[in-house]
């Protein structure tokens, strides 16, 4: 026999589920009924949701997406390392290292202040323009450099937040044992800070995976460029929808996972 409280809560739960289900069904029905009533719907349906085109282009898009994944995979570790270095540079306390600190500040200000696409253009077209021999003029190299430079600035800020979030008492405890400042950072502060900002960094890396598509503007035939090629060949926009779906298949689970980690962290703290 459930208690009065349990009966009451079960009743509330049933009621809430009913209302949520009903309102969702209503919205879906409205979209399904109203959108096809728009005057341009038949044309949009043909050029964006064409099953034939979708089936023909999807395997090619998937192949091209491997480039996006590859570029992501070799950029991510570089970003992690450079971001950590920049974060530490901004923490350098000795006067001799002042230039390092200044560099850290300027770096994060500049690369967080310029749109990614501009950095990609400037580096992707500018540096190969110096007349470098193959393979050093490859847009894959300089596109990667542009992404690494930009994203390191964001990751550095996240690491710095993490470092600052470690309580002063941890530092005191480590120092009181006679450890050097360097060892305190390396063995006590950083390991805790890096763990703490995993969810925040995951969100940045999800954004990176999407921004790899921007490299299409300087050459690499990755998924966005490939979709553009198909669009021109078939005079149809469906390949873009296919590309979007492929991105979502990767980013939605990753986003969910990051949110899950965040929620877990919040629970652990409370």
């Amino acid at each position: 026999m459930p208690t009065r409280r349990q009966q009451y809560e079960a009743r509330i739960r049933r009621r809430s589920a009913l209302i949520a289900g009903g309102s969702t069904a209503l919205v879906i029905a409205a979209v399904l009924l109203l959108v096809p009533m728009a005057p341009g719907w038949p044309a949009v349906k043909k050029s964006f949701f064409n099953a034939d085109v979708f089936a023909k282009t999807f395997p090619g898009l998937l192949d091209a997406f491997l480039w996006d994944v590859a570029i992501f995979l070799w950029s991510a570790p570089l970003i992690f390392a450079l971001g950590l270095l920049i974060a530490l540079a901004r923490d350098a306390r000795s006067p001799a290292l002042y230039p390092v600190r200044l560099f850290g500040v300027l770096y994060t200000d500049i690369f967080r202040g310029v749109p990614v696409i501009l950095v990609i253009y400037l580096i992707g077209f500018g540096i190969p323009g110096l007349g470098l021999p193959r393979p050093w003029n490859s847009p894959y190299i300089w596109g990667t450099v542009a992404l690494v430079l930009t994203y390191s600035a964001y990751v550095a800020e996240v690491f710095r937040t993490g470092i600052e979030s470690i309580h002063q008492s941890q530092r005191s405890a480590a120092l009181s044992l006679g450890l050097s400042n360097r060892d305190v950072m390396r063995y006590v502060i950083l390991p805790q800070a890096v763990r703490k900002v995993v969810p925040a960094n995951m969100n940045i890396f999800i954004a990176l995976q999407k921004d790899v598509a921007l490299l299409s503007f300087i050459g690499p035939v990755e998924i966005f460029r490939q979709a553009g090629v198909y669009k021109s060949l078939m005079a149809n926009f469906t390949p873009y929808v296919g590309a979007a779906l492929i991105f979502l298949a990767l980013t939605i689970p990753a986003t969910r996972y990051a949110d899950h980690l965040l929620a877990k962290q919040r629970r652990a703290r409370s």
Binding site: S169, Q170, S172, A173, A174, S176, L177, Y187, V188, P191, Q192, R195
Partner: peptide, 12 residues
């Protein structure tokens, strides 16, 4: 050596 009120062990 010093020991603090709040232990301050390294949690990781």
């Amino acid at each position: 050596g010093i020991v603090f009120q709040s232990y301050n062990l390294f949690p990781h």
